[in-house]
């Protein structure tokens, strides 16, 4: 059997030296940020955190084309698993994060197994994810051993890096920054592999790729596994950062919306889409939350408006708009 063709950079435009240097400069600038403008750290942490989870959604929704309306199920599972392990058994959340990730993958593969086997897709898949998230929400509400409706208060045991507990925001800034960079790198690498191409093939035409020998069931399962694992790890960080979780703020529908809106608005199926969407949406939600404290839903109203505008006028997200403008400028220059 001939060796499968090694994917090379010719599958997509390679990065020139200039691009690498500017990326490096951006990274350095981001590392200096806590000392330059310390006030924005909370917003930056939330931007990176939701960029990580949005990237998780993006692998399944953007690349493999399976829109999930219930990614909060992985987010919540990740938050609960590590927090329960920490509160009840005293296990370090670093360790717990691996369990969260594993639990997310197992749940993802289970949901994927039951739905993709029967060729569930489109709105049906979106709804079944929603149903799973709601079931977990109901269980978390009722089950007293996991805190019930009151949720879990994670005790702060002082500054202890081994337990992922810090008195300052800076460590969380670097953790989320590096996880975000890691998720970008992972998806960037994934895009160039055969599996990455199978994702796109399955998204574009399920039946045609099946006819050409792509095992679409396996492809969707892999996408689901990566997606669920990434989102669950984000849940652990969220729980350790806020030190409090309850069923509504983790398994709630609003969280599924928060997670999926970032890649959709930034540009689904692109590496930078989730980050871009998060850069736009996160500060917006934080600002409106401060400006309209008595009306907790105003940021969702603006989300809804942005979503409608993006779907109607920018189906490729903000990144599509940026790309168009960029190419137009390029044409004009030369």
């Amino acid at each position: 059997m001939p060796r499968p063709m090694q994917p090379t950079t010719h599958l997509r435009p390679g990065f020139g030296r200039k691009a690498w240097i500017s990326l490096g400069l951006v990274l350095v600038a981001l590392h200096l940020l806590p000392w330059v403008i310390p006030n924005v750290l909370h917003v930056m942490i939330m931007i990176f955190l939701f960029a990580i989870m949005g990237q998780g959604w993006n692998v399944l929704g953007g690349y493999a084309g399976q829109f999930s309306f219930g990614h909060s199920v992985f987010f919540g599972l990740g938050a609960y698993v590590s927090s329960l392990l920490f509160v009840n058994l005293g296990w370090s959340p670093w360790f717990g994060m691996l369990f969260s990730c594993a639990a997310g993958i197992v749940l993802g593969l289970f949901i994927g197994f039951v739905s993709f086997r029967y060729g569930l897709k489109g709105p049906f898949f979106a709804l079944i994810m929603l149903a799973f998230a709601e079931i977990f929400h109901m269980i978390a509400m009722e089950w007293k051993a996991v805190g019930g409706a009151l949720g879990i208060l994670i005790p702060l045991e002082g500054n202890s890096p081994a337990l992922m507990q810090f008195m300052d925001k800076e460590p969380f800034y670097f953790i989320t920054l590096w996880m975000m960079v890691g998720s970008l790198y992972l998806v960037w690498k994934m895009e160039g592999t055969r599996m990455g191409l199978y994702f796109l093939a399955t998204r574009e035409d399920h039946d045609a790729s099946e006819a050409l020998g792509v095992d679409t069931f396996k492809v969707q399962m892999v996408a689901m596994g990566i997606s669920a694992g990434m989102t669950s790890m984000g849940g652990t960080i969220y729980a350790q950062y806020l030190l409090y979780i309850d069923p509504d703020s983790t398994f709630g529908l609003a969280n599924s919306v928060e997670i999926m809106l970032r890649p959709i608005i930034g540009g689904p199926g692109t590496i930078l889409g989730p980050l871009l969407g998060s850069v736009v949406l996160t500060p917006l939600s934080e600002i409106t939350r401060l400006a309209f404290q008595s009306y907790s839903g105003v940021h969702l109203m603006i989300y809804g408006l942005i979503l409608v505008v993006v779907i109607m006028f920018l189906p490729d997200g903000i990144i599509g708009l940026v790309r168009n403008v960029f190419y137009k400028m390029l044409k004009r220059v030369g």
Binding site: F69, P123, Y295, M301, L307, V308, I311
Partner: peptide, 21 residues
């Protein structure tokens, strides 16, 4: 079809939170 699904989701987010407001 997922675009229509998302559009109606956007509209419902807007209407519900407008009602809150």
């Amino acid at each position: 079809e997922h675009n229509q699904l998302l559009l109606t989701l956007g509209v419902s987010l807007f209407m519900e939170n407008l009602a809150v407001f």
